[in-house]
Every structure is written in C-alpha cells, then in structure tokens.
Design a protein around this nucleic acid. Structure first.
Lengths: 149, 149
DNA sequence: GTTCCTGCAAAGGTTTTGCACCATA
DNA sequence: TATGGTGCAAAACCTTTGCAGGAAC
C-alpha cells in the first residue's frame, strides 16, 4: 500500500542489522515486514495483533526485542503520545521526518512537516549547552470530528 | 527553595479546586505541598516517595487521583519524556511555559525557553486544520557529563 | 446526614526478564 | 558446534478501579 518506500526500508533494515552482527530470524523478519506493510506509527500490541491475524504470530517478547534492536540501529523512532504506550515509526534513509498533531479527544493523529519550525528547532538546539541529537514535537488539538461533537 | 512562586501556585491550586466544587482533604493537600516544594517536574512515584519520607505518606490511589484533578483544572502539565512514566509539572498563573532537553544517556533534563521557537510553533499551529490547544517539545541530547564519561 | 475523599487491595495494561529449545552461521 | 534468536511463562512496572470507612460540608 505504501509502495516501494516502505519496502526499501525493510531491505535497509535487514542489511543494517546484518552489518551490526545480528543473525537472521523468523520473528524479527515478521516484525520488519509488519512494520513495512503499515507505513505509519503503531504500538507493539497493534503490530503483534496484525502479525497474528496474518498467521505469522510472534511471541510478545520477540516483538519487543525486535523493536528494541531496530530502535538502537536508528531504524525506528519512538513516540510517546500520552496514551500510556509507545508508538514506533519508520525512519527513512532520506532523513525526512515529521511531527504529529494529536487529538486530545479521540487520540487520532495527523502528521505534519514545517520547514520554518525545523529551522527554529535547529537554532534553539545550537544555542543549547548540551549536544542535541534529535527532537520530538507534539501539537495537542481538537480534531474537526471531536469539535463537531 | 523555589520561593514564593511555588507557594503562590499552591494557594492558587487550593483556591481553584474549591471553586470547582472539590472538598478539602489531607491527601490532596499533601500532594499539592509536595508538588509546590519541588518546583520541577516529577513522577507520581517520586512524589509519593518524597511524601512518605516526610512522614506524610499518602495512598497510591490518592496521589494519582489528586494529580488527575489538578491536571483537569489546568494546574499541572503532563510530560512524556520516553521513560515509561509520566512527569507532572506546575503550570504557573503567568502562563509562562518552557520545554525540555532530555539526556538520552542518564535521563537528566534541562528546561529551556525560546521565543522564536514559540512563534514558529504558533505559525505552524495556525496553518493546521485542527484546532491546536497546546504543544510539547522535547530535544533529545547527550549531556556534558555523559559526553565526557 | 449526605456527599466526597481516602486508603487498601486487587485488577488492568504494557514492557521486561529467565530459561530451555531451536535455528543460524 | 558455538552463538544468538525464539517462545512461553512469570515478573516488574505504572496506573486505574472497587469498595468500605471516615472526614468535610
């Protein structure tokens, strides 16, 4: 559905993990495919459910271990949107990234990108005494559906 | 330690809660004092530990219930810094707010404020189709101590 | 006296860990 | 064959909920 972009991510993920000395394995393969098949952000539980529904059920621990390895390799970004669980999002090779508007009413999210905002963040990071690696921005909002009541 | 500012917050909190029809109570009082005494952001667990150390032990449920009421009243801001638990921070009457730089190594945080960044966020929010209420920004970094060690 | 607040205990949920077994290189 | 990946189960963790008793209004 999300085309070659996500597929490219999958190939890169497998390559990068091999380069880091990780062996191949069925569970991790399923996790990578599951993430690539759904180029949005999902939780560990959602991912496990989806794999189970496809008949590629994977142990809970393996899901978390795979996510952890992918995150350490810089292939996943972790989001905390205030729902009490973490969401994982693909990091693409082109470095493009975006942020999220979250509806405080229903929890739906809307990705957005803003160059001026990125520049402002970069400038703020440069002024900091600590070595800034990255950033997360969450806009809290009311979506049109919730606003309508 | 944090002077009259936090004390003023405590008084305002009690006043606001009364105005909202809440009754006074020992546990909630202790939570308000505990928050005001430590004008940074803390987790529910840290707050409970601190109160227990002061001999003002409060049931776990009461801590969470008090935090929830204070949040609904707009007296607390909730932060998710990626540690798996929530941090609560005082919202002062002057509306001043700041964001956080988090050390991914040790978890220490550094508050910062940047007017240009606030303007950029405001502009991005104005362009959004959803009605934006607020925002959270987290800069991930390596603190000097972790960079050295 | 009614209503809300409180504490304890138990449940809920997500994430991590221990361990034996199996697949990979 | 040695090492790391996998699954199951259990644990750890934060947070919420149910309920009986007590305090505030």
């Amino acid at each position: 559905m999300s085309g070659g972009r996500a597929q490219a991510w999958g190939e890169r993920a497998r390559h990068e993990l091999t380069a880091r000395g990780h062996r191949a394995g069925g569970a991790r393969d399923a996790v990578i495919d599951g993430l690539a098949a759904h180029d949005g952000c999902c939780t560990a539980g959602e991912l496990a459910d989806r794999l189970r529904a496809e008949g590629r059920g994977v142990g809970t621990a393996s899901v978390y271990r795979a996510l952890s390895v992918l995150q350490e390799a810089g292939l996943l970004r972790v989001l905390e949107l205030g729902e009490g669980e973490r969401r994982y999002e693909l990091v693409h090779a082109d470095g493009e990234h975006h942020h999220h508007i979250v509806c405080d009413g229903c929890g739906r999210t809307l990705p957005f990108h803003d160059d001026a905002l990125e520049r402002a963040i970069g400038a703020a990071a440069d002024r900091s005494a600590w070595a800034v690696i990255g950033h997360d921005i969450v806009l809290h909002a009311t979506c049109p559906r919730c606003a309508a009541g």
